[in-house]
Design a protein around this nucleic acid. Structure first.
Lengths: 341, 341
DNA sequence: GTTCGCCGTTAAAACGTTTCAACTCTTGAA
DNA sequence: TTCAAGAGTTGAAACGTTTTAACGGCGAAC
């Protein structure tokens, strides 16, 4: 008969009900092999009857260690980060840990609240995709003893482990693909220009462009205000308005949303993809393959990003000698109809 | 000068460093107004110097209450649930609580692990979109004293608060819209048929259909294996293959992914939307408005779902008299070009 | 019959915080 | 001058668990 909701049953209560000492109850919980079959059964029965729930606070206070990993994500609404989180969960599960997630929604004060909270909870490790990778708050936390790993961002210096994807390489791979397909009039579409990922992908694209012996001036830059479908459509209007002799034959979009918007507008304008305009996106979001013309894109190893981050933070938490490392993953081109046709 | 990582600075250390008693340090933390300006400054200085981090476990153990709400979501990769989570966070923030998220990924054992974990952490309230709303685990937790609210699901009986959206009503509203637009040959597209939401939306649609005096037999049912874009495209092929005299003039899709796939295939087949086929989706996902033809859809108040759930669980946690209630939200039709044209 | 070792169990200490009653000054009123 | 009130501070107790040293009982070995 389970107990009434009348607050918190403790080991002491269980001990009394089972007619054993409190230490024995703890043994049943933590080292069941040290307890005789009979008493163990009696104690477990009492726990079930009384509705005993271990008090994690007390357990952690005494034992000093928690069984959780925390990930503070930048934007829970973005599938990229939830995939990263899934990777973290996979790795944590393998170590018998649970993962708790905090969502900052790109807001500094929420990020700080979560970080404080998790630090005070003494989580075993703290993974974070920070609003600002250079925030001193991260240094403080690390200095006070909680292992911190930066995810999908990097920062100068070797104060942290970090895992990220090589955006410069991604930009280069993308451009090389378009060049391989024979395109010599190419547009780079994306913005705002000061966003690290936009900057890096453009830099990579420019490198490939230059290595092909082409004039840097000839790479068409179409800057967008943001990274949305609407921005892509707007860029599409600009392209459609060009004379066919001047219009690029291919577009490298800094993300898939822009690429999808572009694709829609291009089709609506009566142009054909890829015959009139090849389109290459970035991120390989779930709907990329399901677009009207299946979209070529650059895929990032999202789950692996998470798994690796979790492994790193656990290695650091384990305490042996540990040197911080910056892991940079290689993005992968996924060629589909929108550039192959 | 911040301390070395050599484990955990306690209030005792701070007290010693500041030359005050341990109780005073606690007062600085919890009732700063009771401490004189001078000592407060001295203590705060010591805390900063030593890198003091409050131990949440000890705090909670002693005070008995936690400052967190937990939400165990069914699928962190689904934007619906992240929107719900955002709503929960909004409400929690207003109460000065933080929210931790657990992701079950529709797996029972992960759900159980998270629920156990959060119960043991003595969270103030537990929100959950369960794999199985009838799981006895939920009863156990509630009986042991942690307030539980079921989100986006309901269960019979009055053992829990729950918040959900009225899918029957949503189906009816959708069908009424198509009938209002004059359609009399209509297809319902979705599956698998045993999914609660498919069943409910179809039931609502049928009610509206019957109320319009139409023969139930005339509502065309196109069953899909799943709820993906690919399923929608496949349904589109079936529709396009019909003679124009027999083909429905409108399709109500059980979710937006199917609707988007259908739309793509319809356009690819040379049919016009909405002239040849009006299309109505469900969920109003982010990309619905950005489709080639902006998609009409049925919107669910996702954030409000979360806010309400959080408010309910907090009310229950507050402890006054509380009667469990089942809140059913009203979905809202968003009419766009795909049914208006 | 004594000793030894082993097993199951116990009692007490410790973790770091919050709370509370008690104490010491200081100040203003009687 | 005495007293009351109040502000500021203190020390100890308590939260529920884990851990450890010690204990009693029992069979085996001598």
């Amino acid at each position: 008969m389970p107990s009434t909701p009348g607050r918190s049953v403790s080991v002491k209560d269980v001990a009394a009900a089972a007619g054993v000492s409190l230490g024995t109850v703890s043994n049943v919980l933590n080292r069941p092999d040290r307890v005789s079959e009979a008493t163990r059964a009696r104690v477990q029965r009492a726990m079930a009857d009384l509705g005993f729930v271990r008090n994690e606070s007390a357990r952690q206070l005494r034992s000093g260690v928690s069984r959780t990993l925390a990930y503070v994500m930048l934007d829970a609404g973005n599938p990229f980060f939830t995939d990263v989180a899934a990777g973290i969960e996979t790795a944590a599960e393998a170590h018998g840990l649970t993962v708790v997630l905090g969502n900052s929604g790109s807001r500094r004060e929420r990020e700080q609240a979560h970080l404080d909270q998790f630090e005070q909870q003494r989580v075993q490790g703290l993974l974070v995709t920070p609003v600002d990778p250079d925030s001193p708050l991260l240094d403080q936390i690390a200095r006070r003893g909680t292992p911190v790993v930066i995810v999908d961002r990097t920062r100068e210096g070797d104060d942290f482990c970090s895992v990220a994807v090589d955006d410069v390489l991604g930009g280069r791979v993308a451009m090389e693909h378009l060049l391989d397909r024979g395109h010599r009039r190419v547009a780079f579409i994306g913005g705002p220009a000061d966003l690290g990922q936009v900057r890096d992908r453009l830099a990579g694209a420019r490198t490939a462009w230059a290595e092909a012996g082409l004039d840097p001036e000839d790479l068409v830059l179409l800057s967008t205000a943001d990274l949305t479908v609407a921005d892509g459509r707007e860029a599409g209007q600009r392209l459609a308005g060009m004379s066919s002799s001047r219009r690029p034959t291919a577009a490298f979009c800094v993300n898939d949303l822009i690429a999808l918007g572009l694709l829609q507008q291009v089709i609506a304008s009566g142009l054909r993809c890829p015959a009139d305009l090849a389109i290459l996106g970035y991120d390989d979001v779930e709907y990329a393959a399901a677009a009207a013309v299946p979209l070529s894109s650059v895929r990032q190893p999202r789950q692996q990003l998470g798994r690796t981050a979790a492994d790193l933070v656990l290695e650091e938490a384990a305490g042996g000698e540990h040197t911080h490392q910056r892991v940079l993953f290689t993005p992968e081109l996924v060629a589909r109809a929108s550039t192959l046709g």
